[in-house]
């Protein structure tokens, strides 16, 4: 998955969109990495939390 966009104002707690469906199947034992890029250089604000929901169909 590349470059999922998200924007927010300086006051927002979340980016928008706040959720992205990622239709992928994850094999057993897979290692997932996530990285983010921000145009904010504030040491705190540039750090995002992420929550991953895995769905087992």
């Amino acid at each position: 998955m590349t470059d999922l966009p998200g924007v927010s104002t300086a006051l927002d707690n979340n980016i928008s969109p706040a959720s992205y469906p990622l239709p992928v199947s994850i094999p057993k034992g897979a290692r997932l990495a996530m990285r983010g890029q921000s145009n904010i250089t504030n040491a705190t604000d540039r750090i995002k939390d992420a929550v991953l929901y895995g769905v087992v169909p």
Binding site: L32, A33, M34, G36
Partner: peptide, 14 residues
Amino acid sequence: PARVITIEISVEKT
């Protein structure tokens, strides 16, 4: 239990 996924997150700054 049989399907454990390890996840890492990192954030870069520009």
